[in-house]
């Protein structure tokens, strides 16, 4: 495994928590009253929101609407994720 920088490490945690959410989402689509599933979803949702907030503050927006720049449109300031080392 390559050595990850701090930005990539935070991105990995976001990807992990988004993956947990995506898995729970599909499971809940066919099991919409499962208490354990709902609890699992809520736990990871809170975690994802916190991690994304940290990422936005340190490294810029993950969605165009998260851009907050007053001098420069931040969405075009950061690379897209298909570049090696940017995901």
């Amino acid at each position: 495994m390559p050595v990850l920088n701090d930005k990539q490490k935070l991105m990995r945690r976001i990807q992990q928590s988004c993956f947990a959410l995506a898995e729970a989402n599909l499971y809940l689509d066919s099991h919409p009253t499962c208490k354990m599933g709902l609890e699992y979803f809520r736990k990871h949702k809170a975690e994802k929101e916190e991690l994304e907030k940290e990422y936005n503050e340190k490294y810029g927006p993950l969605t165009a609407v998260q851009s907050e720049g007053t001098k420069k449109w931040e969405w075009v300031a950061k690379p897209f994720p298909w570049e090696r080392g940017e995901n």
Binding site: M11, R12, C18, R84
Partner: peptide
């Protein structure tokens, strides 16, 4: 839909 600037799972190919 809304685009998120990240891959669902990382892709980093050296060669």
């Amino acid at each position: 839909w809304m685009y998120e600037k990240k891959l669902q799972y990382p892709v980093n190919i050296k060669n």
